[in-house]
């Protein structure tokens, strides 16, 4: 019964404040839950309690008109809530965060957080699945093409975006925007795509202007390209 009351309270709290805040509140009093309880036994035959109807988080139900896709369900997302997880960066620079970093700073970041897997010379390590980052230009028509950031990736924004969201493997998403600009400058500098002068600096503006060697190496899907049709 206690459990049920608690979940009811949580549901009410969520309905009122949204799940993020509900979670913060509950973490003060008790640790976050790690498993679900078995359904409670109810009634004289010890039936198991059914799922409870899900509660809408909408602050106000408003006019309900299913034909017009008005359900009184969900709530507006604020700019702040969006900003918290809106981390993508696009080729034209949209989404790149403020900040900057130099090649020299990037060399430091790289040696501390990247080199252990990707190698001191960015050569990668097949044994642990860490890809080679530079080299391979001109090999895409070879029997064994070498696909790297340098030879294959069409946009510098992708390098920033991916490192920012998912690297390093042992602490994903832990690098600051400045550190990611810096390490991007280092990788692109080592790839001879931008200058490897220690002071070479990348920021939102300059990163979006980087022209990658294989930028024009992609075509849209032409399939079906093979086989007879009946």
């Amino acid at each position: 019964m206690f459990t049920r009351k608690l979940s009811l309270l949580c549901t009410l709290a969520m309905a009122a404040t949204g799940p993020g805040i509900a979670q913060e509140n509950s973490s003060e009093s008790e640790p976050p839950r790690t498993v679900a309880e078995l359904p409670e036994r109810i009634g004289e035959y010890d039936e198991r309690a059914p799922m409870q109807p899900p509660a809408s988080s909408a602050q106000s139900v408003g006019d309900i008109n299913p034909d017009n896709l008005e359900f009184g369900v969900g709530q507006p997302a604020t700019d702040e809530q969006i900003a918290r997880i809106d981390i993508d960066a696009m080729p034209d620079g949209r989404g790149l965060p403020p900040g900057q970093g130099t090649y020299a700073e990037g060399e430091e970041v790289y040696s501390q957080t990247c080199a252990a897997c990707h190698g001191a010379d960015l050569e990668g390590n097949k044994d642990i699945g860490a890809p080679k980052l530079i080299g391979g230009r001109g090999t895409l028509t070879d029997a064994k093409p070498v696909k790297t950031v340098e030879s294959y990736w069409p946009y510098a924004s992708t390098l920033f975006d991916y490192v920012h969201r998912a690297m390093p493997m042992n602490a994903p998403g832990s690098l600051s925007a400045d550190e990611v600009y810096a390490v991007s400058a280092y990788v692109l500098g080592r790839a001879d795509i931008i200058s490897d002068d220690p002071d070479t600096t990348l920021d939102a503006d300059t990163l979006a202007k980087v022209k990658m060697p294989n930028a024009d190496g992609f075509v849209s899907d032409p399939r079906p390209d093979v086989g007879a049709t009946k």
Binding site: T11, M14, G18, P19, P53, P54, A55, S56, S57, A58, F71, V73, G74, Q75, P76, A77, Q81, I82, D86
Partner: peptide, 18 residues
């Protein structure tokens, strides 16, 4: 969110209500 008239967020409960 993005190019939408009104950005929205949905809890899992919300989604199951639709």
């Amino acid at each position: 969110h993005g190019m939408v008239d009104e950005p929205m967020r949905f809890t899992m409960d919300d989604i199951k209500r639709l």
